[in-house]
């Protein structure tokens, strides 16, 4: 893969119990870019993220981050290395306050971490989190919860964010704001690797795309090329590539 890849998967095999989901998955993620992973439901997209983040055992193959092998490294260490992971669905701790959720983003921080300053900075960037800092996190709306999850992921200044279907359940306007936020992160040098069902809209906001099918990479290319590829429309008939509501 290109030398300017921050993350590389090489022939990764893994799954749940005896069931293999990733069948020798390989792709690279370009540093400083937004890359979107698309593919039919059950293709193994989320499973691939879990394998990268050390939540799912990799049985064969290797994963490299920033030139270092990180295969099967535990999450706590990967966070220290500069990776953060925002899983699919709801990931806040509903019983804790908004501020305390944010604070947990620094759970793996070194002892001399300037927690107060970083919390302040995060709340400056996401004013709604300051406004609702003392509230129980379950009182946030869906969009605010996603903001909180992203803000929490950014607490330790990651180099790479893995984000799994962030737009699910958000209104079109909020999806727009979300992609703006991801592009803003890119402009600050953070590499974004996301999974999206809304393939068209996501690819329009990305630099690169990866198409997964049956646990393998089917296509990897620049996002606009993938958008123009007739095979993709084929693959997604009735799937994620329906024309987006204008």
């Amino acid at each position: 893969m290109a030398t300017d890849d921050i993350l590389t998967l090489e022939d990764v095999v893994g799954g749940y119990g005896k069931q293999t989901i990733l069948n020798g998955l390989s792709f690279g993620v370009r540093r400083g870019a937004i890359t979107t992973v698309i593919g039919p439901n059950g293709a193994g997209k989320s499973t691939a993220f879990k394998a990268v983040f050390g939540i799912l055992a990799v049985k064969a193959g290797r994963i490299l981050f920033d030139g270092q092998e990180i295969t099967n490294r535990p999450p706590r260490q990967l966070i220290a290395d500069g990776i953060c992971y925002v899983p699919q669905g709801r990931n806040i701790f509903s019983e804790l306050s908004v501020a305390h959720n944010l604070e947990l983003g620094a759970a793996a921080a070194p002892p001399d971490f300037p927690l107060k300053q970083r919390m302040e900075a995060a709340m400056d960037r996401f004013p709604v989190l300051r406004k609702k800092a003392g509230q129980q996190a379950s009182t946030l709306s869906g969009g605010e919860q996603k903001m909180l999850e992203i803000a929490r992921g950014l607490m330790l200044d990651p180099k790479l964010m893995l984000i799994d279907e962030p737009s699910i359940g958000l209104s079109p306007i909020l999806v727009g704001e979300l992609f703006d936020l991801l592009r803003d992160m890119r402009s600050r040098g953070i590499t974004v690797l996301m999974i999206e069902q809304n393939a068209k809209r996501a690819l329009e906001n990305s630099d690169y795309g990866v198409v997964l099918e049956l646990g393998r990479t089917r296509i990897q290319d620049r996002a606009e090329k993938i958008l123009a590829d007739p095979r993709i429309a084929q693959l997604f008939l009735g799937g994620g590539l329906e024309p987006a509501p204008a």
Partner: peptide, 8 residues
């Protein structure tokens, strides 16, 4: 979820 945030 806690593990994914690096909570020990």
């Amino acid at each position: 979820r806690a593990l994914s945030l690096g909570v020990d």
